[in-house]
């Protein structure tokens, strides 16, 4: 059946299309191409003298420095020291942050008592407190782990109670209407509902942890990526410095990848 008024003859022009767009999609091949092109350009610039060796060492030199680090076995010593501090500080900071954030999210007393405290301490750069941490926790591992712990604790607290505040009240009321216990409501409704926010908080705190790791290692550390970068910097060994920075960037990427996997697994119920 067809509408008689449309007829057969074609008169008039088509309506111009003006929808679409505003929907960027990730294309997998683009990112490696950008990386390779950038490094190739950099290498070419260094070889032709377009980029002076003092300003920036060639990627090949940085790679040599990396191979050197690998062959002497120092890489693993630096990495092991750094990763230990990083994981210990980040795990305990995140765990404590989730616990305190949950308390603030659930109890009026904790909220009124702790929330202003968190707001007051969160903006302090934890690096500024490092001398104090050294006095409190010793110049060894303690102060370094503590710096990372404090740095990751506060953003996790804020992400957690923010997530809990945003849990649909209707779901909580539903839980109450079925006579669920308080613990069940927290465990089965509130915490899963806050999980997306907690995981995106973990993304941010992982980056903060790496920044603080380097800062803490720049003071009184024998091994660690931060110490390596510091020594390279004071010797003006820019090739080693670039190597150290590249390793940090890789650690950051691996962290982000792991959290991305965790999100995919725990939040598979989302579209």
């Amino acid at each position: 059946m067809r509408d008689k008024t449309t007829g057969n003859q074609k008169a008039g022009k088509p309506v111009p299309f003006r929808g679409g767009g505003f929907l960027p999609k990730p294309k997998k091949i683009i990112a490696p191409i950008v990386f390779i092109a950038l490094i190739a350009f950099w290498e070419w610039g260094s070889r032709t003298g377009f980029i002076g060796p003092l300003i920036l060492p060639a990627p090949s030199e940085a790679f040599e420095a990396f191979m050197n680090l690998l062959n002497t076995g120092l890489l693993w010593q630096h990495l092991a020291a750094s990763l230990q501090r990083l994981l210990l500080g980040w795990f305990s900071g995140t765990l404590l942050g989730i616990i305190v954030g949950t308390l603030i999210g659930l109890f009026s007393l904790a909220r009124s008592g702790l929330q202003p405290l968190v707001s007051a301490i969160f903006p302090i750069p934890k690096i500024a407190l490092l001398p104090l941490f050294i006095i409190w926790f010793g110049i060894g591992e303690g102060s370094k782990v503590a710096t990372i712990l404090f740095g990751t604790f506060f953003p996790t607290v804020i992400a957690t109670y923010g997530g809990i505040d945003n849990v649909d009240r209707g779901l909580i009321r539903m839980g109450q209407s079925f006579g669920l216990s308080r613990l069940s409501i927290i465990r089965k409704i509130i915490l899963p509902g806050a999980l997306p926010a907690i995981l995106s908080g973990a993304r941010i705190s992982a980056a903060i942890a790496i920044i603080l790791l380097v800062a803490a290692e720049m003071i009184a550390a024998e091994y660690g990526i931060g110490a390596y970068i510091l020594i390279a910097g004071s010797l003006m060994a820019t090739d080693q410095l670039i190597t150290g920075v590249a390793i940090l960037s890789c650690i950051g990427l691996i962290f982000a990848w792991v959290i991305g996997k965790a999100e995919k697994y725990f939040l598979k119920w989302r579209a």
Binding site: D168, G170, L171, R173, M174, G175, F178, G179, L180, S181, S184, K188, I189, P192, G193, L195, L267, W269, R270
Partner: peptide, 21 residues
């Protein structure tokens, strides 16, 4: 009115929620 289903639970999980306690 808004169903109040837990989005992270399947159909049977949502029914089971009311029974678990």
């Amino acid at each position: 009115q808004d169903f109040a289903l837990l989005p992270w639970r399947t159909v049977e999980g949502n029914v089971s929620l009311a029974l678990e306690d």
